Amino acid sequence: MSSQNNSQQPSLIGGHAEYIKGVTESAIGSVTGSQAWTSSGEQDKAHAVDTMKTAGANRDSSQGFGKVEQKLGQATGCEGMVKEGAASKKSA
């Protein structure tokens, strides 16, 4: 069972992708008036935030993208990416 856990560790990139998916679903729900789409989007966003928090806590800052990650975080409004980018930049 531990090998399964190792292969499915939370990923920052996967978390961001899931968050974008949730934002998209929520937008579709808002435009169409579909509560199912809105609810699904909000659930995906909440799960993505948890995934990113876990991945960030377990992350080796030397594996980050430094300034690029920091700037992308600033552009998208993701405080976690800004923090992780700054930490990666310092360890590089």
Rank of each mutant, 00 (worst) to 15 (best):
G80F: 00
W37P: 02
K90R: 10
A17F: 04
E42S: 13
E42L: 14
S88V: 07
A27E: 14
H47P: 00
E25H: 11
A75D: 06
Q74M: 03
A17W: 02
Q35L: 10
G15Y: 09
N58F: 04
Y19Q: 05
G64W: 07
D50A: 15
A36M: 11
V82M: 07
S62P: 12
D50T: 13
S26V: 08
K83W: 01
M81I: 00
Q43T: 07
G15W: 08
S40M: 12
S61V: 14
C78K: 00
G66H: 06
Q43W: 00
A86K: 12
V82T: 12
V23L: 15
G77F: 00
V49W: 02
G22E: 00
G33Q: 10
S39E: 13
S61A: 08
M52E: 07
K71E: 11
G73R: 02
V23P: 09
Q63E: 13
T54Y: 02
N58Y: 05
G33E: 11
Q35G: 08
E84W: 15
E84Y: 11
G14S: 07
S30N: 13
G66T: 03
S34D: 14
M52Y: 06
K89I: 02
I13W: 06
K89R: 08
G80A: 06
S91P: 00
N58W: 00
D44E: 14
S40G: 15
T51G: 01
K45G: 02
V31Y: 11
S62G: 12
E79D: 11
Q35F: 06
K21Q: 10
G66F: 04
L12E: 07
L72M: 12
K90H: 04
G77Y: 01
A17V: 01
Q35C: 01
A36N: 07
S40E: 14
G64K: 07
T32D: 04
S39A: 14
G73W: 06
A87L: 15
S39N: 14
A57G: 09
T76G: 07
H47Y: 03
T38D: 07
K67C: 02
G64P: 10
A86E: 12
K53E: 04
Q70Y: 08
S61P: 13
G85K: 09
E42Q: 15
S91M: 09
I13E: 11
A75K: 02
A86Q: 14
E18H: 01
K89N: 04
A17C: 03
H47K: 11
S91K: 14
S40F: 13
K53C: 05
G85F: 05
L72F: 13
G29V: 06
A36Q: 14
A86F: 01
E18R: 09
G80H: 00
L72S: 01
I28T: 06
G41H: 11
H47D: 04
K45R: 13
E25K: 15
M81F: 15
H47A: 10
T32M: 07
G41Y: 09
I28Y: 11
A75C: 01
V82S: 04
I13Q: 12
D44L: 15
K53M: 05
A46C: 03
E42F: 05
A46G: 02
E84P: 01
E69H: 01
E69L: 07
A57H: 10
E25P: 03
S88R: 04
Q70G: 00
K53F: 01
K90Y: 05
F65T: 02
I13N: 09
N58A: 14
S62D: 11
Q74R: 03
E84I: 13
V49G: 00
